[in-house]
């Protein structure tokens, strides 16, 4: 894949000929410094954006061939997210935030059940009625974890999930993420600039200046 953005009238290539395959059930870390193109890569993998050249094939479906709404349906069916800045919807309570993915699928009953289950699992069983603003950063990210797993995605993207947390809280969140991933057999893609964090993954892709510089699986 190659991705180019036009900014200020000039083309800016942020990803150059990146190509790899991912097996189901794995834990992949994409490691690279700021500006290496890792967030862009994540956006492409999750179908948030379309590559200028190349394609993303998920479960045999070519994402580049799908329109925006079809990709949204695909995400609703198969993809979960955890973001650096949590991205909980501020006007919804913790429980409602966790319910969103399943409700989008039209399964409100399951959404409620699953939300209770997952909130308990991340240790926030009694905080479901709280709004994001009433939760600490770590708590918010745990709610985000619950949300990410609520609809049992096949593929989970985590974008610097500990970036906004202190070391201890971050470690706790990562442990939780790894446990949940193991339990549900999800394929986890972690994007980070933290090499220590990346070490926990089965496979690490290193990015620099938009190009793939190493792949631990290939080594």
């Amino acid at each position: 894949m190659t991705q180019t953005y036009t900014s200020g009238g000039r083309d800016l290539t942020v990803l150059r000929d990146v190509s790899f395959e991912l097996e189901p059930g794995g834990f992949l870390a994409i490691l690279g410094p700021s500006g290496s193109g890792k967030t862009t890569l994540l956006g492409l993998l999750a179908g948030l954006d379309r590559p200028r050249e190349g394609r993303v094939v998920l479960d045999g479906d070519d994402l580049s061939g799908l329109d925006e709404d079809a990709r949204a349906r695909m995400r609703s069916a198969k993809v979960g997210f955890v973001f650096q800045s949590f991205q909980l919807i501020p006007t919804l309570t913790a429980r409602e935030n966790v319910q969103v993915p399943l409700e989008l699928r039209g399964e409100p009953e399951a959404a409620r059940r699953r939300a209770d289950e997952l909130l308990a699992r991340v240790g926030l069983g009694d905080r479901g009625h709280h709004y994001p603003a009433q939760l600490s950063g770590g708590e918010q990210q745990r709610v985000a974890l619950a949300r990410a797993f609520s609809h049992r995605p096949r593929l989970l993207f985590a974008d610097e999930p500990t970036g906004n947390l202190d070391a201890a809280t971050g470690a706790h969140v990562i442990d939780l993420l790894a446990e949940l991933n193991r339990e549900s057999g999800t394929t986890l893609v972690l994007v980070t600039h933290d090499a220590d964090l990346a070490r926990r993954a089965k496979r690490v892709l290193r990015l620099a200046d938009g190009a793939l510089v190493s792949d631990s699986a290939a080594a």
Binding site: L48, E68, D69, A72, Q87, V100, L104
Partner: peptide, 16 residues
Amino acid sequence: LETAAVLRCLGASGRT
């Protein structure tokens, strides 16, 4: 804007 983008990430269609 951000809430809308999150909803889109989670699989909501533009129309929704």
